[in-house]
Design a protein around this nucleic acid. Sequence first.
DNA 1: TTGAAAGCGCTAACAC
DNA 2: GTGTTAGCGCTTTCAA
Lengths: 333, 333
Amino acid sequence: MNRRVTVRDVAAEAGVSQATASRVLAGNESVDPALARKVHEATRKLGYTANVMARALRTQHTGTIGVVVPSISNPYFISVVEALEGVLAETQRSLILCDARDSAAVEADRIALLLGRMVDGLIVIPVSATESATALRSASAQRPVLQFDRYVEQAGTDFIGTDNRDGLRQMVEHVRSRGGETLAYVGSRATTSTAVERLDAFRSLVGTSARPEHWELLGEYNVDWGLEAGRRLLDGGPLPDAIVCSADLIAVGVLTVLKDAGVRVPDDVKVVSYDDSMMGRITSPTLTSVRQPVEAMAREAIRLLDHGGPSQDAPRKCVFTPRLIVRESTGGT
Amino acid sequence: MNRRVTVRDVAAEAGVSQATASRVLAGNESVDPALARKVHEATRKLGYTANVMARALRTQHTGTIGVVVPSISNPYFISVVEALEGVLAETQRSLILCDARDSAAVEADRIALLLGRMVDGLIVIPVSATESATALRSASAQRPVLQFDRYVEQAGTDFIGTDNRDGLRQMVEHVRSRGGETLAYVGSRATTSTAVERLDAFRSLVGTSARPEHWELLGEYNVDWGLEAGRRLLDGGPLPDAIVCSADLIAVGVLTVLKDAGVRVPDDVKVVSYDDSMMGRITSPTLTSVRQPVEAMAREAIRLLDHGGPSQDAPRKCVFTPRLIVRESTGGT
DNA sequence: TTGAAAGCGCTAACAC
DNA sequence: GTGTTAGCGCTTTCAA
């Protein structure tokens, strides 16, 4: 826990100059193989690790990208992080992750933190369609920034996401094809682009007769809100044929309440959801849910980040098409 | 996305020396208020943000600690990260997270990455009781390192964990008090201290008659292994009265298989588990599981890290006592 | 091929 | 109270 081992130490140990040691470690310079071996030995012996910060100060890049997610306990976001990590690993790069704790202030803070640590780029799933704008915009003046999943118009950065309207269309058509006529919507408040698009799509797909006010419940993207919404639905009179949830976390809460009340899913009411996260595979019944092509999106995200868009010009938007995965909560297969 | 603004720029703009600008920005030095105002103006005008890496290079600390977990998709680990984050926030510090993808090699890599980024300390949940040792040991020569949850003897660092044997005792006594006589164990291979301790405890608590070989199933800490183990249990003849799982991820897999086979939990077989993660609250039935006092452990972890133990001397071990949370999978309440 | 020296952006002695 | 200067650990000219 004392002093760090530096190139200087390695150089001294190997009996060469600092420059030579550095060259060997970099690998791509031409150095006498004998000296190179000595340096490698010294490196191993001393347990040397390059100080990324010092190097970055010099080279202005770190081989690391920063990722900020709204909440680390949302399994969908975790799946995104894992996909990004996989893609970055292909090119020997890595990722550091920060949790915005669903707060735009924390998010701004984390973006500054990452920027100060000279990440080569930033991938952000923004907390808010409005409040996240400033931090994103000023970050993108320093480094390539890409928004993922949720879009903040004002940020002026590139974007990777999915067609939420189409996802919702698939959900609604599916439950209708299974005989669902009356539909309730349980989603999050319209503070993010995904929330807005999903709600809008639901409204335009479902006629007003099948959509009384008390069947449109808007809260947060978490399990507690799902529980709360489920209770309100139960207390609000007869249930709809199907409940359309805008996220697995919410659907999980809803399912729990329904189960406790003895409501059978899918027999009494169908439940359809969005995210296709691991959670939906462990509930009972398992969840019919919209899956986003996370792998492909991650790959494209890194590609865009690498070909650092002149965010001044026209921010690029890349929208993928999601696909409904049918499981037990709507009758299966 | 161009050049960064530096203190030099700020100083020039404000018409003072670099040192003065730095002093003003640091806040705690005595500077002429008039000059200070000028500096602040310049800062705002130029949109200056301190380069954390350069600063860190000088001060040797960053206000950031690094955390490495075996797998980011294990909700228990996520809960640990969240708890740590909360404690750090109290002192204006933050955390960066890396995923070791259940590989000691990746883990070593991530530790080096974090060290290179000059984290003030490292909290690691080690991947392996043997293979993780070298990386931990050499890391602890540079910075305070603390092992969390899983212990690697050879690493010689401080440790925070829980009394796994006591946890297991609670599990076994609980199912017995509910009439469970024959018990199966589904856990992970003995590659980590937690796996070893839980298995050992199970073995010494449960007489050999109630513990035939085919009722001791050892695999990995993930859902797939739970599924696999569940199938083997079903295929292996009559079921035991209770299944003791060493992690919620595993229990979730087991529950899924049992459900598909029409086995009723807890009526036909009880299931008890370890971790008390969010997952166990959304399954059906909900899971009886051992809860670790994660908040308290996180607080103590940071405390130990801050009072950087001379890891040379005697590594400190701090062991908390877990508590069983009873839910539906063993009959509730 | 190798070494000496400059400098990335910052702070902390040390002078004034 | 303020400025000058010397590095933190690294890479990279520029000479040799």
